[in-house]
């Protein structure tokens, strides 16, 4: 059966990593048609056509689809839904905004953050902040799914799938006002090979510079615990955890992070975890491959210097 996959497109640009990981998760379900929707989406569509395993790309360009507003994007997907048994997307904030709306309009349940595909109707997903993995079998005729990208490898490129332009959609229910997007030379948090994260123990926005220096030395992405974001030490888009981003880099360095369940939910699938904390009882040490009990204000600069 056929799969419709909503590509991650921001301001006309394809997020290759998230989209290619979702393609790799969806390939087993059937022929994958990728939908690139936005105010401009043609360039994203051309790029999506290179992903291995993509059978076809649909490009929908419409001012009403810019900024991924949920109402218009959901209407567009529902108008295409008839041809597909699975309607899927990477589990980004954009897709989590849109896909439950799509599911309700189709009178089916949504399966959020799916981490494993058992068969075309049976899926695994983490619940309770990843403290349990639930295997569920859906009885719905159409399956609406978001895939947790950190658990799937990105599909390769080199394909040249056909691209078709389709009509757009718009809605007057909501309108875009502005984006405040952090500009950074660092790698993207969810696809970085190394992530350096700071917690409440760092103590201030100013002192986060110590952690950032380590990240920059390693060419790493920056992350933060919820406590650090809540305290205003770090921006919201750095948050790793149950309700923030889920990452699984080759190396995750947690600095001044105690290791609350909610934080572990976002990073415990990292290949190697290093924890630096002055509290030897901190729960983060229970999941760390290498633990160092030390004052971060001396240990982190020393680490930055010696790496």
């Amino acid at each position: 059966m056929a799969v419709l996959l909503l590509a991650e497109v921001n301001d006309g640009a394809l997020s290759m990593d998230a989209t290619a990981k979702a393609v790799s998760a969806a390939k087993a379900l059937g022929d994958v048609t990728v939908l690139c929707a936005g105010g401009s989406a043609a360039a994203a569509g051309a790029e999506a056509a290179t992903i291995e395993g993509v059978a076809k790309v649909l490009v929908a360009e419409d001012a009403g689809l810019s900024h991924r507003l949920a109402e218009a994007t959901a209407d567009l997907i529902v108008s295409l839904a008839g041809d597909y048994e699975h309607i899927v997307a990477p589990a980004t904030t954009d897709a989590k905004n849109v896909m439950p709306r799509v599911a309700a309009l189709l009178d089916v349940m949504v399966l959020s953050d799916v981490s494993g595909v058992v068969d075309a109707s049976t899926f695994e997903r983490p619940i309770y902040a990843g403290n349990a993995i639930q295997t569920v079998k859906t009885g719905d005729a159409k399956k609406v799914i978001t895939f947790r990208t950190s658990t799937f490898d990105a599909a390769g490129t080199g394909n040249s799938a056909p691209v078709e332009t389709i009509g757009g959609a718009s809605s007057d229910l909501s309108s875009w006002v502005e984006d405040k997007v952090a500009v950074s030379d660092r790698p993207e948090l969810t696809s970085a090979g190394i992530v350096v994260s700071g917690g409440r123990g760092v103590g201030s926005e100013e002192d986060f510079k110590i952690i950032e220096a380590l990240a920059d030395k390693l060419g790493a992405a920056m992350g933060a615990s919820r406590a650090a974001v809540d305290s205003g030490y770090a921006p919201n888009d750095w948050q790793v955890g149950q309700t923030g981003k889920v990452v699984a880099p080759d190396l995750y360095i947690a600095v001044g992070i105690s290791g609350a369940i909610q934080h572990l939910a976002g990073m415990k699938d990292s290949k190697v975890i290093v924890a630096i904390n002055k509290d030897e009882e901190a729960p983060i040490f229970q999941v760390a491959d290498y633990g160092l009990v030390a004052d971060l204000f001396t240990a982190v600069p020393e680490l930055t210097e010696k790496l």
Partner: peptide, 21 residues
């Protein structure tokens, strides 16, 4: 959705403490 089963996530292997940087 029929719940087929609920299982514990794979546990991480215990790591080691290092004495210094």
């Amino acid at each position: 959705l029929e719940i087929v089963k609920t299982s514990e996530p794979a546990a991480r292997q215990a790591g080691e403490m290092v004495p210094d940087v």
